[in-house]
Amino acid sequence: MNGFDDHGIVRMGLVQTIKRLRPSAQISEVEDYRSLYKLILEKELDLVIMDVNMPNGSVQDAINYIKIHQPKLKILIFSSQDEEIYAIRYLKMGADGYLSKQSSPAVIEAALTSMLKTGRYASDLLRESVFSKSFTGSSKGSPFEALSDRELQIAGKLAEGLPIKEISTQLNLHASTVSTYKVRLFEKLNIRSVPELMEIFRLYS
C-alpha cells in the first residue's frame, strides 16, 4: 500500500486510518512522482492514495505508468480540487476512486474501507453527478468541459493564484508551454484575466 500526498498532516491522518482498518498493512510514503515510479518498480502494492498536485510529473502520466507496470493496482485520488469538476476526469483517466480532502473523517474511513474491500469508491455527490450527466449529457453546463485535462489542470493552478513560473516547476513544463496553455484555455472560456477565471471556478464549484 502506498500513501502519496503532499501534505504531511493529511497524510498522517490517512496512515492512522489505514492502520486502524487494516493493522497488518505495510505503508510506504513518497514525496513526488519520480519517487512513486521508483516504488512501483520495487514493490508490489495493493492501493495507491495519490494527490494530484505533486512535482516531477502529472497524474495522467502516473496513472498510465501504474497501468503498465502494476495493472491490478488500485488508485484512489485524494484531492482538494472541486469534485464535480475534476472527479469524473480522473476516473476516465483510469483512477478507481476520488476522495475529497474536505470529506469528514467518517466519509474518509468509508472510502478507504470501500477501496480496500472492493477496489472502488465514489461519493454520493459523484454518483449523483454521473447519474445526472447520463441523462443530460453535461455536468451543470460547466464551461470546463471544453478544456483538455492539461488545460483544466493549469486553469486550477492559475485560479489558486500561482504564477506561471511556479506552475511550470510543479508540472515540469517550460514556462512558455504553460503560457500557451493559458492562452488556449482563456480563449475556450472566453475570458481575459485570472480574476475572471477565479469567478468561473466560484460559480461552478
Rank of each mutant, 00 (worst) to 15 (best):
M1K: 11
G3H: 01
D6E: 09
R11G: 09
T17G: 05
T17W: 08
S24N: 03
S24Q: 05
S24W: 10
S24T: 08
Q26Y: 05
E29F: 00
E29D: 04
E31N: 14
D32Q: 11
R34C: 04
R34S: 04
L41P: 09
L41G: 14
E42V: 08
E44P: 00
D46H: 07
D46A: 03
V52L: 15
P55G: 14
N56I: 02
S58I: 06
D61N: 13
A62Q: 01
A62L: 01
Q70N: 04
K72S: 06
K74V: 05
I75K: 15
I75F: 15
I75H: 13
L76Y: 12
I77T: 12
F78L: 05
S79G: 14
S79V: 14
D82R: 13
I85Y: 08
I85E: 11
Y86R: 08
A87G: 07
L91G: 02
A95C: 04
A95Y: 07
A95I: 01
L99V: 07
L99H: 08
Q102C: 07
S104D: 03
S104L: 13
S104H: 09
V107D: 08
A110F: 11
A111N: 01
T113W: 05
T118S: 10
R120G: 00
R120C: 00
R120D: 03
L125P: 06
R127F: 01
F131A: 12
F135H: 13
S138I: 14
S139M: 02
E145P: 09
A146F: 10
A146S: 06
L147H: 10
L147E: 07
E151G: 14
K157F: 05
A159I: 00
E160L: 14
G161N: 10
L162H: 07
L162R: 12
P163T: 06
K165Q: 10
E166I: 12
I167T: 02
L173R: 11
H174I: 03
V178G: 10
Y181M: 01
Y181R: 04
K182I: 05
R184Q: 02
E187I: 00
E187M: 05
L189N: 05
R192G: 04
V194E: 00
V194N: 06
V194F: 09
I200N: 10
R202K: 07
Y204G: 08
